[in-house]
Protein backbone atom coordinates (compact mmCIF):
# COMPACT_ATOMS: atom_id res chain seq x y z
CA UNK A 1 0.00 0.00 0.00
CA UNK A 2 2.93 2.31 0.70
CA UNK A 3 5.24 1.01 -1.95
CA UNK A 4 5.22 4.24 -3.94
CA UNK A 5 5.95 6.01 -0.70
CA UNK A 6 9.12 4.09 0.04
CA UNK A 7 11.57 7.00 0.21
CA UNK A 8 15.29 6.73 0.56
CA UNK A 9 15.33 8.85 3.70
CA UNK A 10 12.97 8.88 6.65
CA UNK A 11 12.49 11.46 9.35
CA UNK A 12 12.94 10.81 13.07
CA UNK A 13 11.48 13.41 15.42
CA UNK A 14 12.68 13.97 19.01
CA UNK A 15 10.49 15.06 21.90
CA UNK A 16 12.05 18.52 21.81
CA UNK A 17 11.20 19.00 18.15
CA UNK A 18 14.47 18.11 16.41
CA UNK A 19 14.09 16.28 13.12
CA UNK A 20 16.66 13.91 11.77
CA UNK A 21 16.62 12.84 8.12
CA UNK A 22 18.34 9.51 8.01
CA UNK A 23 18.81 6.73 5.48
CA UNK A 24 15.88 4.31 5.71
CA UNK A 25 18.26 1.35 5.69
CA UNK A 26 20.15 2.74 8.70
CA UNK A 27 16.98 3.63 10.57
CA UNK A 28 15.60 0.15 10.11
CA UNK A 29 18.49 -1.28 12.10
CA UNK A 30 16.40 -0.37 15.11
CA UNK A 31 13.66 -2.99 15.51
CA UNK A 32 10.98 -0.61 16.71
CA UNK A 33 11.59 1.88 13.91
CA UNK A 34 11.65 -0.90 11.37
CA UNK A 35 8.29 -2.24 12.53
CA UNK A 36 6.71 1.14 12.58
CA UNK A 37 7.76 1.78 8.99
CA UNK A 38 6.82 -1.69 7.68
CA UNK A 39 4.92 -0.95 4.45
CA UNK A 40 2.74 -4.06 4.69
CA UNK A 41 1.32 -3.06 8.07
CA UNK A 42 0.18 0.38 7.01
CA UNK A 43 0.63 2.18 10.27
CA UNK A 44 0.59 5.97 10.27
CA UNK A 45 4.41 6.16 10.44
CA UNK A 46 4.68 4.03 7.32
CA UNK A 47 2.56 6.31 5.18
CA UNK A 48 4.25 9.50 6.54
CA UNK A 49 7.82 8.16 6.46
CA UNK A 50 8.12 9.93 9.76
CA UNK A 51 8.54 8.46 13.22
CA UNK A 52 7.91 10.61 16.26
CA UNK A 53 9.72 9.49 19.36
CA UNK A 54 8.25 11.31 22.38
CA UNK A 55 10.53 9.55 24.86
CA UNK A 56 13.85 10.59 23.34
CA UNK A 57 15.39 14.05 23.33
CA UNK A 58 17.31 15.61 20.47
CA UNK A 59 20.81 15.13 21.90
CA UNK A 60 20.23 11.47 22.51
CA UNK A 61 18.50 10.91 19.17
CA UNK A 62 21.46 12.51 17.39
CA UNK A 63 23.77 10.05 19.07
CA UNK A 64 21.38 7.24 18.21
CA UNK A 65 21.45 8.24 14.55
CA UNK A 66 25.23 8.45 14.65
CA UNK A 67 25.31 4.95 16.07
CA UNK A 68 22.89 3.63 13.43
CA UNK A 69 25.15 4.91 10.65
CA UNK A 70 28.20 3.68 12.49
CA UNK A 71 26.60 0.26 12.86
CA UNK A 72 25.66 0.14 9.18
CA UNK A 73 29.14 1.15 8.08
CA UNK A 74 31.06 -1.34 10.19
CA UNK A 75 28.55 -4.17 10.25
CA UNK A 76 30.77 -6.35 8.07
CA UNK A 77 34.25 -5.32 9.20
CA UNK A 78 36.02 -6.75 12.19
CA UNK A 79 38.23 -3.97 13.50
CA UNK A 80 35.81 -1.08 13.88
CA UNK A 81 37.10 2.07 15.56
CA UNK A 82 35.56 2.86 18.94
CA UNK A 83 32.65 5.22 18.92
CA UNK A 84 32.95 8.19 21.18
CA UNK A 85 30.21 8.37 23.79
CA UNK A 86 30.09 11.22 26.29
CA UNK A 87 29.65 9.75 29.81
CA UNK A 88 26.70 12.01 30.63
CA UNK A 89 24.71 10.50 27.72
CA UNK A 90 25.30 6.88 28.72
CA UNK A 91 22.14 6.28 30.69
CA UNK A 92 19.86 8.05 28.23
CA UNK A 93 21.38 6.06 25.39
CA UNK A 94 20.92 2.74 27.15
CA UNK A 95 17.26 3.45 27.74
CA UNK A 96 16.79 4.53 24.12
CA UNK A 97 18.56 1.39 22.87
CA UNK A 98 16.32 -0.87 24.90
CA UNK A 99 13.27 0.99 23.75
CA UNK A 100 14.17 1.05 20.10
CA UNK A 101 15.47 -2.52 20.11
CA UNK A 102 18.80 -1.62 18.58
Amino acid sequence: MADSNLTEYVTLVSNDGFEFKILRSAACLAGAIKNSLDPTYGFKEGSDNRVTLPTINGVTLEKVCEYLYYNQKYAESKDAPDMEIPPELCLELLIAADYLDV
Binding site: A32, N35, S36, Y41, G42, F43, K44, E45, G46, S47, V51, T52, L53, P54
Partner: peptide, 10 residues
Protein backbone atom coordinates in the same frame (compact mmCIF):
# COMPACT_ATOMS: atom_id res chain seq x y z
CA UNK B 1 -4.34 0.62 10.74
CA UNK B 2 -3.52 3.70 8.74
CA UNK B 3 -4.63 6.11 11.42
CA UNK B 4 -2.77 4.31 14.20
CA UNK B 5 0.70 5.23 15.36
CA UNK B 6 2.86 2.21 15.82
CA UNK B 7 5.13 4.11 18.12
CA UNK B 8 2.29 4.98 20.44
CA UNK B 9 1.01 1.42 20.73
CA UNK B 10 4.49 0.11 21.12
Amino acid sequence: ASRLSYEELY
